[in-house]
Design a protein around this nucleic acid. Structure first.
Lengths: 237, 237
DNA sequence: TTAACCAGATTGGTTGACCAAAAGTAATAA
DNA sequence: TTATTACTTTTGGTCAACCAATCTGGTTAA
């Protein structure tokens, strides 16, 4: 029963570098040291293999790994480019994992609500003026899209993301970034469209925004809890 | 500013299957359909390539991807085996991602505390008798190890994992499984050893256990909050 | 009976040559 | 000068052959 833990601890403290990890790091260095911006092209596989004095297949393998992490994007027959680092790196793969795992929807929603409640609490305490501005922008984008009668899922998600960003906790931000799209696609693929009227939704978003603006954590948490009422009802019914 | 979301939504609804994804799914089916338990050996790459009527390199590539997800473990010159699916799948890669991202420690701890507080809350409501038993076992293992004077980080972690498992939320479980080892290795590599006396630690663990046993969410949350006091102090000092 | 050993089959890993698509380049026509 | 075309080079992708480690089964010697 206590056999799992061994893995974690031993694996994590592997300080030695295998050949492959070494190559991966070299390429990673190439990206970080030189200002290889997002979109720039990586030297060709053949050039790299020559530069590192290793075979091309090893370089290839390393590139594939980095592509997995979302750090690189390789275009067939054309070249390999540096893609947006950071959050996006987390994202692509996690979605694939969730795809493999098919976690139950209830857990997903429950976790999302928990994450956002906490993030909003933090946001109410920590938000900068810039954060506030971002949230307001997202809020307005959401409003205007919704009032045209169109679906505004994307704008809705963006609003929530900006809330979490204001919480100033990188880990929570990453986690929300992983979970929320998963929920949205679930809703879309199952044709679950909430028939809540637009005005009510907008009011709820505004309440959250105002609470954060006033730096009132309790109020903010309460507001987002109200906002999630429908979602909760759907899950537990 | 609203350009990020596009990615999520378009990418996720790619329903077509590339050749490679098709092979990946075939192998995945092999694992799920037949009862290929954890530890069983996969047919050799050559056999698979013949079976699927594709070249060996394609099978190889697919296997590498699945290995990345933690579903397979390939032993050089020996064979490819099915490794623990589920949670472990999430784990290996996420650790690598965190390694790439190097999230700030404060965010990490903050998130862990949030996750565990909520999980414990749920555990107090949902725990089965079996859960309770697992927690108690982990608790006793922790006690006995600690009373010998040895370090009991692993047992400590196991106790917390069992708490979260009792919460019966697969997503939270996965997230804790990702974050906690990260924190522990940080502590170990930075030689941060808490000099709290053993008896106090044990008392705190027992309090949490009892609260869950009594199915008292508030008490459980309070108990784990107390337990995290030292950790919080370290982070915010 | 048991243990050590050896040869052949099987394994994943590696390599270098080749492929078609894309990008680059120079010549040509308007 | 500009746009188009045709050709060359470079790119990542693919494949079949080969390599060394490993496993397997039977044989042999104690």
């Amino acid at each position: 029963m206590l056999d799992l833990k061994k893995e974690y601890l031993t694996e994590t403290q592997e300080e030695f570098q295998t050949d492959e990890e070494l190559i991966i790091n070299k390429i990673k260095d190439l990206i970080t040291s030189r200002q290889l911006e997002s979109g720039d092209r990586l030297p060709s596989e053949r050039k790299l293999s020559e530069k590192f004095n290793v075979s091309r297949s090893q370089v290839r393998s390393a590139i594939q790994k980095l592509e997995f992490y979302g750090l690189l994007k390789t275009l067939p027959k054309s070249g390999t480019v540096v893609s947006n680092l950071g959050v996006t790196a987390l994202n692509g793969m996690m979605r694939d994992i969730l795809k493999l795992q098919r976690p139950d929807f209830k857990s997903l929603v429950e976790t999302r609500i928990m994450l956002e409640k906490n993030a909003v609490w933090l946001a109410a305490q920590r938000r900068s003026e810039e954060d506030l501005q971002h949230i307001e922008e997202a809020l307005k984008a959401f409003e205007s899209k919704l009032l045209t009668g169109e679906s505004a899922v994307e704008e809705d998600m963006m609003f929530h993301l900006k809330l979490v960003e204001a919480g100033n906790n990188s880990v929570m931000h990453s986690l929300v970034l992983i979970i929320v799209p998963e929920i949205i696609t679930y809703f879309m693929s199952n044709k679950i469209c909430s028939h809540v009227e637009a005005k009510k939704l907008i009011k709820e978003h505004e309440d959250i925004f105002n609470a954060i603006k006033e730096k009132d954590p309790e109020k903010a948490e309460e507001a987002i809890d109200t906002h999630f009422t429908d979602l909760k009802n759907y899950c537990y019914s």
